[in-house]
Design a protein around this nucleic acid. Structure first.
Lengths: 160, 160
DNA sequence: TGATGTAATGTAACGTTATAACGTGTCAAT
DNA sequence: ATTGACACGTTATAACGTTACATTACATCA
């Protein structure tokens, strides 16, 4: 066990994320309601991009009562507005933000095999883009950078 | 007329694009069928991102006969595969590639006001991303970079 | 305390985007 | 003339997202 590359205490990682969320909401006076909490938990559960309807079904399963799409989307909007989750446009899916709280322009590395996502944060990318945009007289408000490819694990698994 | 900032001979610009497309397909032995041509023409018609269903309706209007979604998506797949159009993930829309033929990792500047899109091509961005990815042992296959903001015209119009 | 305002959630219907599965036509090469 | 590959047609359905309006929860302050 000691030699495994990624022990990854998942339970701890999730509860960390929830604690951060609670903290951020408390700070900003936002209401971290049970529904929002459940949606965020569900998103963190797999460490993978999660579709809105996947969340929806899980919530419905939990407590017999089915949940409407709009309910999930509202919670997702809240979570995004507070920087707790990101939307991955290339997948129509959502993922928990490991740097929640730190305002950032994230770059996502999306593994085409295992679908896991790494979030990196290189200010140089945003700066370069901002400069390029400025050269055209274009003023930037937000960015979306998603890089598709293969994660180290999957490269190894393909004994590449 | 001589002093207008952007004369932009649209007819010429579209017919150039079509000629390029024809050339590229001829080179690669791909079949530039009437349907594919019509879809590409429709995409170029507005210089704006165009939704698949918008194309679909226009095609149906042209010749009484309605067209099925899958027909349009197949044509779009073809056009993308040959680098003639790009998909804008943040808009679920498609736009003609002004650099068709030149393999490239494009960066899109999308104006939130007028929806027009500029495609820029700064190799530095891709290189930085590739380096960042490599640092994580991640091998890149494709990228998607979409920058939202305001184009020069719309900034001026807002007398910003 | 109970009237009031606001934020959150519920409910139903609908709109938009995309694909699956399978059949038919077209055309070139053998 | 047959075969095989590819393009396109047809039907159905999956997947994703929003609008509009009703109801409930909760804080606040007269």
């Amino acid at each position: 066990m000691a030699s495994r590359p990624k022990p990854h205490d998942h339970a701890a990682c999730v509860s960390d994320a929830m604690a951060r969320a609670e903290h951020i909401c408390a700070e900003t006076g936002a209401r971290f309601t049970p529904l929002r909490r459940r949606v965020l938990e569900r998103i963190w559960a797999g460490h993978k991009p999660t579709g809105a309807y996947e969340i929806l079904e899980d919530l419905g399963r939990d407590d017999g009562k089915p949940v409407a799409p709009v309910t999930v989307y509202r919670a997702l909007d809240f979570l995004m507005a507070h920087g707790l989750v990101h939307r991955l446009n290339s997948l129509n899916a959502f993922i928990g933000c490991p740097r929640a709280g730190a305002g950032h322009e994230a770059v996502f590395l999306i593994c085409e095999d295992c679908k896991r996502v790494a979030e990196i944060d290189d200010p140089a990318v945003g700066e370069t883009l901002a400069r390029d945009a400025a050269d055209q007289g274009f003023s930037v408000s937000t960015q979306m950078i998603e890089v598709m490819g293969r994660c180290p694990d999957c490269q190894a698994a393909a004994h590449g």
